[in-house]
């Protein structure tokens, strides 16, 4: 990891609890991403995933630590970091075009109406909503609403996209289509993306790197799993890749058992040097640069999964 486009450095989030006590959601969390990388965070509810995303977005401030994006510490929200909300968060009194144009005119305040509309239209076309520009969100299906959310996020040509379970409220078919779209758009535009998901298959299909977080409170980033699948992976033959099930089993094992026991089993865990896990043949695995934590999973595991 030479190019640290995004670097989260020792952030903590604490809330005042009852009776003067403080609840620590997580502390001393380090995380970095390279430019153009697609990263997914997986972890159980309550581990602070959304808090990390909100801190990255600038909607929430960390109690300690800093976030550095492109060499600069962030403070507050920025048009460089677009957010795709889980609940799409479209303004219901605006049309599809109005919602996207609102973002465009927020970024380029001196653009005239025609230019704003033309720019917004480009992104509406990109997400395949041509013809629905003048509909209101209430007239759209869940998948179409989320497409508008994606178009709105992309239209401001951000440096990175932050997605908080963007497809969790959608049916399986729509989710698949939108995953394809997001993957295509991110590859085409070279977007850096940070996505929270509960869906292991979604993470495997989309991510270059998968961050595994343990259960909260006091959650830690346990591992960074590098996706061994080729970048030009396709949805249909994903599961035929020899390492697919090894990767999937590794993540599911983590979610089912290790996310609870990780802290007890790994006393020497260094949050600054989180083990980078390569899934592959024995001998190819590389652990963190500090300590050799051998984590390899055979590439020939049977096709049945948990």
């Amino acid at each position: 990891m030479t190019d640290k486009f995004i670097s989260i450095e020792a952030i903590a989030k604490r809330y005042p609890g009852a009776g003067g006590a403080t609840t620590t959601v997580f502390e001393n969390l380090w995380l970095s991403m390279a430019r153009g990388e697609f990263c997914c965070v997986i972890g159980h509810s309550g581990c602070g995933k959304t808090t990390v995303l909100n801190i990255l977005a600038g909607l929430d401030a960390p109690s300690e630590g800093a976030v550095i994006v492109d060499g600069q510490a962030i403070s507050g929200t920025s048009l460089d970091r677009a957010v795709i909300f889980q609940s799409h968060a479209l303004l219901p009194w605006r049309t599809v075009l109005g919602n996207v144009a609102y973002a465009v005119s927020s970024k380029w305040r001196n653009w005239d109406r025609v230019k704003v509309r033309a720019h917004a239209q480009t992104f509406i076309d990109l997400v395949g909503l041509t013809g629905s520009e003048h509909k209101h969100p209430s007239e759209l299906s869940g998948g179409m609403k989320q497409r508008v959310g994606i178009a709105r996020a992309l239209s401001i040509t951000p440096k990175m996209m932050l997605m908080d379970e963007p497809f969790s409220a959608l049916d399986a078919l729509t989710r698949g289509t939108l995953q394809d779209e997001v993957r295509r758009i991110c590859l085409e535009t070279g977007q850096t993306a940070f996505m929270i998901t509960h869906d292991v298959d979604e993470a495997i299909y989309l991510a270059d790197k998968i961050f595994l977080m343990t259960n909260g409170p006091g959650a830690v980033l346990a591992e960074v799993v590098e996706n061994p699948l080729p970048r030009d992976r396709g949805r249909t033959d994903l599961h035929r890749h020899p390492l697919y099930y090894a990767l999937r089993n590794h993540i599911i094992d983590f979610l089912v058992t290790r996310s609870k026991t990780f802290a007890a089993e790994t006393p020497g865990h260094d949050p600054r040097n989180v083990p980078l896990v390569h899934i592959g043949k024995p001998g190819l695995s590389i652990a963190s640069n500090e300590e050799q934590r051998q984590t390899w999973i055979s590439g020939t595991s049977p096709g049945l999964t948990a």
Partner: peptide
């Protein structure tokens, strides 16, 4: 007013006055 609408305006760096007229007033 729904927090998520306000958050949309915040992520778009919309100022307080414009936010009041474009998000809070219509909502």
């Amino acid at each position: 007013v729904r927090k998520e609408w306000v958050n949309v305006a915040r992520t778009l760096e919309v100022g307080t006055v414009r936010r009041a007229f474009t998000v809070i007033l219509p909502a």
